[in-house]
């Protein structure tokens, strides 16, 4: 201990302390970040190899079973329908890279025709939601945005935020942001309820209302922000940060200028 305190004025001491602090911060982060994320699943490395007709066997069966019946690593795909495949593969969520609190969206590696082949195969396992056609999710009524907003605030904004920016769920799970999700995928997500999202089948939310919600989400993603920067549309937290840094921060900088002594003609 004595040795340590003798060296605390060493020029490198500050650096050492800084390194310790960084290491501690990193360690804490690793400890609190959802743990499973760290381990990579080597078995899914094989997804790099694409094969036309045996796509499922190659890319999906390791988790979902050779016949899509499900294993301990992945749920049964019987009855999930073609919409689920189009959503999961089309948004890059499937094939999953690694197990974790939630499977994130990532770059999709399958061309659309292969996704369609996969979807046809899974759809043949059992009846389920069908990939929507373009006129199902494309709105032409200008009033759909307002109606969709009302539906969105009842059914969606509690998780996805008022502007579709996403939000936190329990234990590291989250509702993703919807800004860059395509209308078809938004529609399919409502049909199928991917991962922990509940589904909104046609029986409780008919096609027309899904279309209105899609119209609202797309409108919001592209809507201008009349008042200036939207600060992420995350509510008062980012507004508070901005107010402190660019409001009070700038004002304090100005105050320093106001109060500072003017430079003297010559230094004595």
């Amino acid at each position: 201990m004595k040795k340590l305190s003798a060296r605390r004025r060493h020029p490198l001491a500050a650096l050492v302390v800084l390194l310790f602090a960084l290491a501690a911060t990193g360690g804490l982060y690793a400890a609190f970040a959802p743990a499973e994320k760290a381990q990579a699943d080597s078995s899914s490395q094989s997804l790099a190899i694409e094969q036309g007709k045996k796509l499922f066997a190659v890319g999906c069966s390791s988790c979902h079973g050779l016949n899509g019946q499900g294993t301990s690593d992945g749920p049964s795909l019987v009855g999930v329908g073609s919409a689920a495949v189009d959503f999961q593969v089309g948004t890059g969520r499937m094939p999953a890279q690694q197990p974790g609190a939630q499977v994130p969206a990532k770059r999709n590696i399958y061309p659309q025709d292969q996704i369609d082949q996969l979807a046809a195969y899974v759809a043949s396992l059992g009846p389920g939601p069908v990939t929507p056609t373009k006129d199902q999710y494309t709105s032409s009524d200008p009033n759909d945005v307002a109606a969709g907003g009302e539906l969105f605030r009842t059914n969606c904004s509690q998780c996805h935020n008022f502007a579709g920016k996403g939000g936190a769920l329990t234990n590291g799970k989250y509702a993703p942001a919807l800004d860059s999700t395509s209308p078809r995928h938004i529609y399919e997500a409502m049909q199928t309820g991917p991962q922990n999202m509940p589904s909104f089948p046609d029986s409780v939310m008919p096609e027309k209302q899904k279309r209105q919600i899609v119209a609202y989400v797309r409108h919001t993603a592209e809507a201008p922000s009349p008042g200036g920067m939207d600060l992420g549309s995350l509510g008062p937290v980012t507004e508070g940060l901005f107010g402190w840094i660019f409001g009070l921060g700038v004002l304090i900088a100005v105050a320093i200028w106001v109060a500072a002594h003017t430079t003297k003609a010559k230094k004595s």
């Binding site: 009842t154 509940p198 089948p201 029986s203 008919p206």
Partner: peptide, 21 residues
């Protein structure tokens, strides 16, 4: 009554995993 449609909800409308208000 469904908040979305204003129509009475039937038991078979509600699937496992779905959510309706």
């Amino acid at each position: 009554v469904s908040m979305n449609t204003d129509e009475p909800l039937k038991a078979e409308d509600i699937q496992v995993g779905s959510l309706v208000f």
